[in-house]
Nucleic acid binder design. Sequence first.
DNA 1: CAGGCAATAT
DNA 2: TATATTGCCT
Length: 310
Amino acid sequence: MDTDASSSSSSSSSNSLIVDNSESIDMRVSSSSSSTYGTKSAKQSRGVRVLLVDYDTIALHVILAMLKKFGYEAVGTTGGLHGLKLLREKPYYFDLVVAAVQMPGMSGLELLQRIKLEFTSLPVVLISNDTDPVMAAKGFSNGAGHLLRKPVTFYDVENMWLHVQKSKMDETVNKNRYKEQTGSAGQDSLRRKEKHRSVSGSPSGDDDGSKRVESRKRKGSCKDQSSDDKKNRSNTNKKRRVVWTAQLHTHFLNAIECLGVDSAVPKKILEYMKVPGLTRENVASHLQVLLPTYLVEESMTVKTSLDIIS
DNA sequence: CAGGCAATAT
DNA sequence: TATATTGCCT
């Protein structure tokens, strides 16, 4: 797994270094008292997936190490473009992007802008060498969630997950209306196109901006802090139909791949995906529809290998 | 209660 | 058609 990401054959080879801890997903099933982690209070940072982009390899490694120390799942690269590529390859995967401002080629600001275009609600934290207020203003006006100054401290890293939470807040809860009619026969219905936020994302380059107004559903990480976000769904809010876009589906497949076909049950897949609003039933339904296809593909693979053997 | 699965509904 | 829901069994 994950090998797909490293298959980047960019022109300049010196520019794409990936350091990833394929620690796989924490499989704590929470069935029993998980004493696996000596920590008494589960760190909020644990499991948060961070993409770090910094051309400065020293800083890259240092910050990566710090991230891992605090329990993040971190992937690092030295190239902004490569960072974008990683984001596209693993849609919905990352919870947070941390990027250096000063970089040759694509600067952190540029990267920030492109991320905001493509992955609208993915939080971005910038790291800068100086404290140029103009730059800071630019960063914030472009959607940066925070601006850190080098050198990045343990404190900074420890609290990075907060930015994920913060961006979560903004997205509020999905307020989609869905037709609710209690079994009455009047079903002709005038269903209007819901163009509000739905669970979907748009593939990298297919939207011209006016086509559809969609926003991405991202985030989710630690599961205990849903204290008050669960409340506000008492409005005119009915169930929302999940739209299995290519990206969401890819993420779904990634989840199965990472978990392994055998342990890919709805619950675990859901935990892996961390897509807010997505329910176990959604995953189960999707799984039921897609399993046949998936198995067929696999059997083909098996067949091929058998063929090779014989 | 969670899963897998098939039928049925929207 | 795509996704959801329900029922039935394990």
